[in-house]
Simulated assay, not measured.
Amino acid sequence: MNALSWLTGRTPQLTEQQRQRCEHLPTAAALDDTALNQQRLVVIDLETSGLDMRRDQVLSIGAVVIEQGAIDLGQQFECTLQRHDHQVSASVLIHGLAPSAIAAGIAPAEALLGFMEFLGDSPLLAFHAGFDQRMLGRALKQTLGYRLRHPFFDAAELAPLLCPQANIQQGGLDDWTDYFGLQVQQRHHASADALVTAELALILFSRARQQQFDSLLALEQGLAGWRRRQQAHSL
């Protein structure tokens, strides 16, 4: 079954060209033993209208690529999604997206198709990835009828797994950037947050290789054990 056929609710209103682009989106690659310094990984950050994963909307997407063990500044994605029905809320004080910028943004179907074509079959990484994964997945389902199956890695989990000596429990992005002395250009801006998350990821991947986690598959296995230990400690 093609991902486009996984629909709930009303059928998205797409042009024939958009439907064809959906049909030709690549299938997510399975995790394997590709070395971390050979892996293409897309680091994403979303700005949203709020934190309610059932009702709030994606307003902007920022993403950078890690490939061949470095951030490839030639591969970046940034867009603001057009939302005619957007209601101004307190979140504007965080993300700084003016109503005029949102009204002048890219149509959601075009923005999301553009991002998925940029993503290709690569896995994703974000800080507090569960939120980004849910919000992006819902936007794709509602707008394109597309089911997101790409693996997501969470830098907020990788950091304490690989750097327990930091003794940062449930830390935010600011905690880890301060710990490693990273410079943040502009917080709560999708592209800037994606870039600093990618810088953090490179540090974490260096620590991972030192600990014999030299692939995303190995990291996923390490995270599974870490999650079990965290759950046991909380009982």
Score class of each variant (00 low, 15 high):
M1K: 12
G9C: 10
T11N: 01
T11K: 08
Q13G: 03
T15R: 12
Q17M: 05
Q20T: 15
Q20A: 11
H24K: 15
L25T: 08
N37G: 00
R40Q: 06
T48P: 00
G50W: 11
G50A: 06
L59E: 01
S60T: 14
G62W: 10
G69N: 03
A70Q: 15
I71K: 05
C79H: 07
L81Q: 04
L81G: 04
D85H: 15
H86Y: 13
A90K: 12
S91G: 02
S91K: 11
I94K: 06
L97C: 05
A98K: 15
S100R: 15
S100M: 11
I102N: 02
G105A: 05
E110S: 11
A111R: 07
G120S: 08
G120R: 15
L124A: 09
L125A: 05
L125W: 05
G130C: 08
F131L: 07
R134C: 04
K141M: 06
T143Q: 07
G145N: 05
H150K: 12
D154V: 09
D154R: 14
P160T: 12
L162C: 02
P164G: 06
A166S: 07
N167H: 12
I168R: 12
Q169P: 01
Q169N: 08
G171P: 03
G171F: 10
L173I: 09
D175N: 14
T177W: 11
Y179S: 03
G181E: 03
L182M: 11
Q183D: 02
V184D: 00
H188S: 09
H189K: 14
H189G: 03
A190D: 00
S191C: 04
A198M: 08
L204G: 04
S206H: 14
R207L: 07
R207T: 02
Q212A: 10
F213V: 07
S215T: 13
L219Y: 09
L219V: 13
L223Q: 04
A224D: 02
Q231A: 08
A232E: 05
S234P: 02
S234T: 11
